[in-house]
Amino acid sequence: MKMKKFIAVLTVAGMMAVTAAGCGSDSGSTAAAATDSGSSWDAASAITVVSREEGSGTRGAFTELFGVVDENDNDMTTLDAQVTNNTSVMMTTVSENEYAIGYISLGSLDESMVKAVKIDGAEATAENIENGSYTVSRPFNVAVKKDLDNAVATDFMAFIMSTEGQQVVSDEGYIPVSEAEAYAGDAPEGSCVVGGSSSVSPLMEKLVEAYGEVNPNASIELQTSDSTTGMTSAIEGSYDIGMASRELKEDEAAELDGTVIATDGIAVIVNQNNPTDDLSVDQVKSIYLGDVTTWDAI
C-alpha cells in the first residue's frame, strides 16, 4: 500500500514538474525570442519562403504578377518553399518565424500578427489597388449555369452587382468592380445554394446577410469548399451559384457564365521583427525563384 501511495505521489509530482517545466521553458523561449529579436536580427539567416499550393488562385495570381515563371509561363516557385493551403497557417508561420516571407489575401491581413511590405514603394491598400499603384490583385468570380432558372439566384446576382452589394464589397476591404445602379429587384421567394472558394466565402457571407435584409423571402445556403468544387458543383447543379478565387478554366467557361464580383489584393507579408519595409517586384521574384536565399543578399 505504501508503495502505491508513493507511486501516486511521485507520479503527480512528476507530472506537475514536467508540466511546469514545459510551460516554463516554453514561455521562457518565446520571451527570449521576443527580446533578442529586436536587437539580434541576423540578416545572414536563410529566408523561409512560404507559398500557397499549386493551382490556388492566390498563388496563380502571385506567380504571374511577380514573374515567378519561366519563358513558357510555368510556375517556377522554388521547391524549397514551404507550402500551405491555409491563410491562417501562412500568417501564423510568418508571425512565428522571423526570417519568413509569405503572401495572403489583403482581406485576411492582420497587422497585429505580421507586416505587409510595400511593393515598389506602394503600400498594399484598397485605394492603391483601385488607383493602380499597387498591382498585385486577383478577381473573385462567381459563376452560374448558362440556362439558370432560379429566380432567387438571378436576383441575388443582381443584388451583388448593385450599389448596395458593391458597398458591402468595399466595406469588407475588397475592391468593388462596378459603378452599378441601386438594387431594384422584386424580392422573389425561394431558395438557392451558393458555394465554392473559401477565399470568397467571408465576403459572400456578408453579401448573403445584406441580401437577407432587402429580401427576407429568400433563403440562401452558403457552402464553403474550394474553387474547383464550386465550379464543378455549379455545373452539376448542386450549387446554383459557384464561387472561385481564380479565372474560370476553359472547360468550365463552356458550361458556366462567370462574373467578377470584386477584386482582392495580395499582400506580401514578413515577420514584424524584420526591418525590411519595402521590396521591389524583382526582389520578391528572386526570393521565390530561390536565387536569393538570405536576407542580406537582397
Binding site: N86, M90, S225
Partner: peptide, 29 residues
C-alpha cells in the same frame, strides 16, 4: 457540406464542430 445552420432534415447539409472550427480558422479571420 459546410452550411453553418441546422438543416431541416438529415437530407440537408450542415457542418459539425470540428469542421466549423476548421472553417473559422482557415481564413484567419
Amino acid at each position: 457540406g459546410t452550411v453553418a445552420q441546422i438543416p431541416e432534415s438529415i437530407m440537408g447539409s450542415g457542418r459539425t464542430l470540428a469542421l466549423h472550427m476548421y472553417n473559422l480558422s482557415s481564413e484567419g479571420l
